[in-house]
């Protein structure tokens, strides 16, 4: 699913690998195609519209859900945004009708809300997460959220961060996103990775770890990335 300007995440991951001389190969998995858990080191799971979300959910109910779980257990990185995040949880309960099946890789559930949570969002990222990557320049992440589903976290996950500005998972508990092991989910669009290069690099190094062990990534010139990061944070303060 890729309805929402999240294509930037894919561009970001492949470019940042390429700039370091790491060859990255991209495959697109659509409904009906089988996931190959041995082949891929990093998965991106974006958001879709209602109808597509239903179709993807029933696809995951078949073998693809099992295969994705296998990949995660073998330490492949799975990064999801919005609709993808919801389907990595246990279920999504719409306003009417049956709950949508989720893979259960993240210990979260999502229920439909009646208010759309829209706007710029800034979070303070979980300390444990960023310690492995370059976080001297910022411990925040910035993005744009647009969801009506409210996500609630269970004990098996930690929130990706604490909401400084915006709504986050459910607009009540000030948490945003969730992670467990190498599986990550959040509501940040923007696209999120280009504007948060520390987090993008964290995903890349975790993905490399699976095959090559601990690797220190070559530092890139991220002047423009941090400029966009900082000006996006400044934008959340002024709305004119």
């Amino acid at each position: 699913m890729n309805i929402y300007g999240d294509n930037g995440n894919i561009i970001c991951l492949t470019q940042r690998c390429e700039w370091r001389g790491i060859q990255a190969k991209l495959d697109q998995v659509t409904i009906g195609q089988k996931i190959n858990p041995d082949k891929h080191d990093i998965y991106f799971f974006g958001g879709g519209q209602d109808q597509q979300q239903i179709a993807v959910s029933s696809d995951l109910k078949e073998t693809n859900g099992i295969l994705l779980k296998k990949a995660a257990h073998e330490n492949a990185v799975i990064f999801s945004v919005c609709g993808g995040y919801q389907l990595l949880g246990h279920y999504y309960q719409p306003e009417k009708g049956k709950a949508l099946f989720g893979v259960g890789l993240l210990d979260v559930i999502t229920v439909a809300g009646n208010k759309r949570m829209i706007g710029n969002i800034v979070i303070e990222v979980d300390k444990g997460i960023l310690s492995t990557t370059n976080c001297e320049l910022s411990t925040k992440m910035v993005g744009f959220e647009n969801h009506s589903g409210k996500t609630f976290l269970g004990k098996g996950v930690k929130p990706l961060g604490k909401v400084l500005t915006g709504y986050g998972n459910n607009s009540n508990d000030k948490t945003e996103g969730a992670f467990a092991g190498t599986v990550f989910g959040c509501y940040l669009h923007g696209s999120v990775l280009p504007k948060n290069p520390h987090f993008a690099d964290l995903l890349i190094s975790k993905a490399l770890q699976r095959r090559y062990g601990q690797i220190k990534l070559k530092t890139l010139d991220d002047t423009i990335e941090w400029q966009a990061h900082n000006s996006a944070i400044a934008r959340t303060r002024s709305r004119t």
Binding site: G5, N7, G8, I118, N120, F144, G190, S191, T240
Partner: peptide
């Protein structure tokens, strides 16, 4: 601004 769309994600498409 509101008339532009407050979310710039679309630039990535």
């Amino acid at each position: 601004l509101i008339a532009d769309g407050t979310d710039v994600s679309w630039l990535w498409d």
